[in-house]
Design a protein around this nucleic acid. Structure first.
Ligand SMILES: [Mn+2]
Ligand SMILES: [Mn+2]
Ligand SMILES: [Zn+2]
Ligand SMILES: [Zn+2]
Lengths: 137, 137
DNA sequence: TACTCTATTTAGATTAAATCTAAATTTAGA
DNA sequence: TCTAAATTTAGATTTAATCTAAATAGAGTA
């Protein structure tokens, strides 16, 4: 129950024009506290102890809403689940096909495109896949 | 029943050390003929007319095997399904959140990394998301 | 050819991430 | 307080993907 994270979460929600309900604050604060890139279900389980009655639907709804609002990012890898990232600054990711961990990668080409071939770009994802430092022995 | 595509598919399979069974040839040839970026299920349905007895498992097994062998690429977007691309040259993709279409995007930074922060890079994916040319009206 | 072993395919069952539904609860405004 | 809209909840449902066990096909040997 990190109060600072909850305050920051509340602020971000308000700035994004999203009503800062207790559940939404806890979902976002929980994402802040996990330095990994958790899946929705991982967050749901992590929240279980603090917010016993929270439902899976609320976790999914909140995460999807915040992705739409640009507050957080979603990561799509060769793994089955979608993962989430509270850091909105542009950076890439490395997905290890063995241990399934996701590492941050400083993105080289940081210029963010807003239009490509006439398409309106709202977000971008750069994902590398392979064997991580530890899994290649 | 494009014979040229089937011949090319057979060659690629052999080069990748994969036994070129009739089903595998048809799956890969079918991917060649679809200029879109089909999902496994879309390919399964498309194959239905030519190879009536082919099973979903074979389509999935073949596609996964060919991704592992580096013959084809898999695309992971905000959409639910994994899509596949027969073009192995490096290029990016644009995913339209409205019509769900996937467009090819010539990749600017074409230099392919083989190692990042000590991680072994086997493939990379650059995916933009937003509203495509047609869906933004 | 006949025999054996391995590789591949098949149909259907199973798994699990994500969404959906309809009822309950909470919030904001009059 | 009353009412309507927003949010949450539990559980059912959907469906992409994998798994299973049996059938089929291919390769090697004699
Ligand atoms: Mn990250
Ligand atoms: Mn492509
Ligand atoms: Zn690893
Ligand atoms: Zn579109």
């Amino acid at each position: 129950m990190n109060k600072a994270a909850q305050l920051e979460a509340s602020e971000l929600l308000k700035n994004a024009d999203v009503y800062p309900s207790y559940q939404r604050i806890m979902v976002l604060a929980s994402l802040f506290e996990s330095d990994e890139h958790p899946s929705a279900d991982a967050l749901f389980k992590q929240l279980g102890s603090n917010v016993p009655t929270i439902s899976r639907a609320t976790v999914y709804n909140t995460l999807n809403l915040l992705v739409d609002k640009g507050v957080i990012r979603s990561l799509h890898t060769a793994g089955a689940e979608t993962h989430f990232d509270s850091v909105s600054e542009t950076h890439g990711h490395f997905f290890c096909r063995k241990c399934k961990k996701i590492y941050d990668i400083p993105q080289q080409n940081t210029e963010v495109k807003h239009e490509l071939d006439g398409h309106l770009v709202e977000s971008q994802e750069l994902v590398f896949t392979g064997l991580c430092k530890e899994c290649r022995e």
